[in-house]
């Protein structure tokens, strides 16, 4: 499989946007972005035990004068909901980059509930949502979403469609 260009393009947008803290719970779709963040000297990459930790941490980042991004998969959005009351109530900006599961060609039925509920849940707690359906739109959407978040003091989520990251297929005997 050829290596897709969008994760590196996305990472360059984070650097250009002066993002200094990257918090994550791993998802296969974020693999490259996590590796780039861990290797970048000017970025604090923080592995979390649960996604809501990242929401609280990035609120702290803003209070301390830095910009931050949370990398998560759609199921992790469910873990964030009450913690999102903090940036919502305090008008603290941050960017969430959500790799979608439970839609386009999904294999695992357990991803459907939260995948189908992701956008509605985020919007229910005041998060602004931008969806990306093609690889070419990833970098421009991240750039625009960072601007939206930090110009207006809002939490913005970029949802990366399974069309972009590719549906994960499992076959018996696969190694990962």
């Amino acid at each position: 499989m050829s290596v897709p260009a969008w994760p590196d393009e996305l990472f360059e947008e984070l650097v250009a946007g002066d993002v200094r803290q990257v918090a994550y719970v791993p998802d296969a779709g974020h693999k490259r972005l996590i590796e780039r963040s861990l290797a970048a000297p000017g970025i604090e990459a923080v592995s979390l035990t649960t996604e809501e930790e990242g929401v609280a941490m990035l609120a702290g980042a803003f209070l301390g004068g830095q910009r931050g991004v949370l990398l998560l998969q759609s199921s992790g959005v469910g873990n964030c909901i009450n913690m999102l009351s903090l940036p919502a109530e305090c008008r603290i900006p941050m960017l969430m980059i959500v790799t979608m599961r439970g839609e386009w060609g999904e294999f695992n039925p357990w991803q459907i509930t939260m995948g189908q509920g992701t956008q509605a849940s985020l919007e229910a707690v005041g998060v602004l949502v931008n969806r990306v359906e093609s690889a070419a739109d990833v970098a421009p959407t991240v750039r625009a979403s960072l601007a939206l978040a930090y110009n207006t003091g809002r939490v913005v989520a970029v949802l990366l469609s399974q069309k972009v990251i590719g549906a994960k297929m499992f076959k018996k005997g696969d190694t990962k």
């Binding site: 803290q21 990242g54 929401v55 609280a56 941490m57 609120a59 702290g60 803003f62 209070l63 301390g64």
Partner: peptide, 12 residues
């Protein structure tokens, strides 16, 4: 969330 808000500030 308090401890993690503290971590974000501490890193910044």
């Amino acid at each position: 969330g308090a401890a993690m808000v503290g971590l974000g500030i501490a890193l910044a």
